[in-house]
């Protein structure tokens, strides 16, 4: 398992309706969706979701050392980020992941005339990519837990906080993201645009046991 690339070539996701609604500024108790506008938004959102092709992959790597400034892996590569290292003091492994929802959604968005519809497509694409990452993360949490390992709930992504965006190159090569149809520019832009990468820490729970009958 360690070092292998695990692929999710197809993910069955539910339409992340609440997240899209929130991303577009909707308020659960205040926003009133009515009339033809509401119908148009609903139609655009479902159409946009039907164009998302979520897929993802992840890899688990062994950690040699966690310092104040980052995480050193056993193969000598490093993930530098003080914020991340602070949250990962006891980790034994690093979870590295990438997802994309494909290019159809952004191509369709860019072909639209209505700015409102484009905003909806954009939100659906972004939230579906996040939902795909969340799905893969939760699935791994479950699988690892049954092996006595704990995958942290919090994820860190290159470019956020103090984690350098250049780590995209590390993930790109590690996960062979080109096989998912993703390209990475010199400035670390991913195409398809609605793609997400992340790290999370894994604690090997030595002495952490299932119910101890003794």
């Amino acid at each position: 398992m360690i070092g292998d690339i695990h692929c999710f070539s197809r993910m069955s996701l539910e339409y992340p309706e609440k997240m899209v609604f929130a991303r577009l500024g909707g308020h659960l108790h205040k926003t009133i969706l009515e009339g033809s506008a509401a119908e148009k938004v609903r139609h655009a959102a479902i159409h946009a979701f039907s164009l998302c092709r979520p897929q993802g992959r992840y890899c688990v790597l062994p950690v040699r050392e966690v310092s104040e400034t980052g995480i050193l892996l056993t193969d000598g590569s490093a993930v530098s980020s003080c914020d991340f290292a602070r949250k990962c003091k006891n980790i034994t492994h690093l979870w590295c992941a990438a997802v994309t929802v494909g290019v159809d959604i952004t191509e369709a968005r860019d072909s639209l005339e209505s700015v409102a519809e484009r905003a909806v497509y954009d939100a659906v694409g972004g939230e579906t990519a996040d939902a795909a990452m969340e799905f893969m993360h939760r699935k791994c949490c479950r699988d690892l837990l049954s092996r006595g390992l704990n995958l942290s709930e919090r994820r860190f992504s290159p470019g956020y906080g103090d984690m350098p965006l250049e780590l995209q190159f590390f993930l790109y090569n590690l996960l062979k993201m080109n096989e998912m149809g993703i390209t990475l520019s010199d400035r670390c832009f991913m195409t398809p645009e609605k793609s997400v990468t992340a790290f999370a820490g894994i604690t090997s729970i030595q002495g952490s046991v299932f119910y101890d009958t003794k």
């Binding site: 577009l24 500024g25 926003t31 009133i32 969706l33």
Partner: peptide, 12 residues
């Protein structure tokens, strides 16, 4: 006042 969200604002 959040009665409308972004798509409604743009459509209007």
């Amino acid at each position: 006042s959040k009665e409308y969200f972004l798509p409604q604002l743009i459509m209007s």
